[in-house]
């Protein structure tokens, strides 16, 4: 099976590979896996207090399509609001990368990773609003 040019491009020149500080209150981390193949994907988003995605990083251990899907979405989400990022569907990812049917699950993984990262950020923010880890926020501002 041949990979499309866009998959190869994202695979060979992956955008935004890396990590963001998980303990930063403005960073949401999404960790998802595919038990059908044993691949894992971590996607992290740095989100401003007004809900705009400022930065995105990923690390994926998986096939070319999984890496390309995560690389593509990190490009797509930057500058988007959380609500708009939540609307990204695996169909759009699969279409952009011309993924064959057997690789559709890689795009599903990327979609799930965005949602998991945003949910993580929202949970953190809710916890902060509840007043619990106020100290952590102070530390982050100082660093």
């Amino acid at each position: 099976m041949a990979y499309s040019d866009k998959v190869i491009e994202h695979f060979e020149h992956s955008k935004n590979v890396g990590t963001l500080d998980k303990s930063d209150p403005n960073v949401g981390t999404g960790l998802v896996g595919a038990p059908a193949c044993g691949d894992v994907m971590r996607l992290q988003l740095k989100i401003s207090d007004d809900g705009v995605i400022q930065d995105a990083k990923f690390k994926t251990f998986g096939c070319g399509s999984a890496i390309a899907s995560s690389s593509l979405v990190t490009e797509w989400v930057k500058g988007k609001s959380m609500d708009d990022a939540m609307k990204i569907t695996n169909k759009e990812i699969a279409k952009e990368l011309s993924l064959p049917p057997v690789k559709i699950h890689c795009s599903v993984l990327a979609e799930d990773a965005i949602k998991a990262a945003i949910e993580d950020f929202r949970a953190k923010r809710a916890a902060r609003a509840a007043g619990a880890p106020a100290a952590a926020a102070t530390v982050a501002r100082e660093s």
């Binding site: 595919a34 059908a36 599903v108």
Partner: peptide, 8 residues
């Protein structure tokens, strides 16, 4: 487990 659906 080999199918996407069950795995998801």
């Amino acid at each position: 487990l080999d199918t996407e659906h069950a795995a998801a």
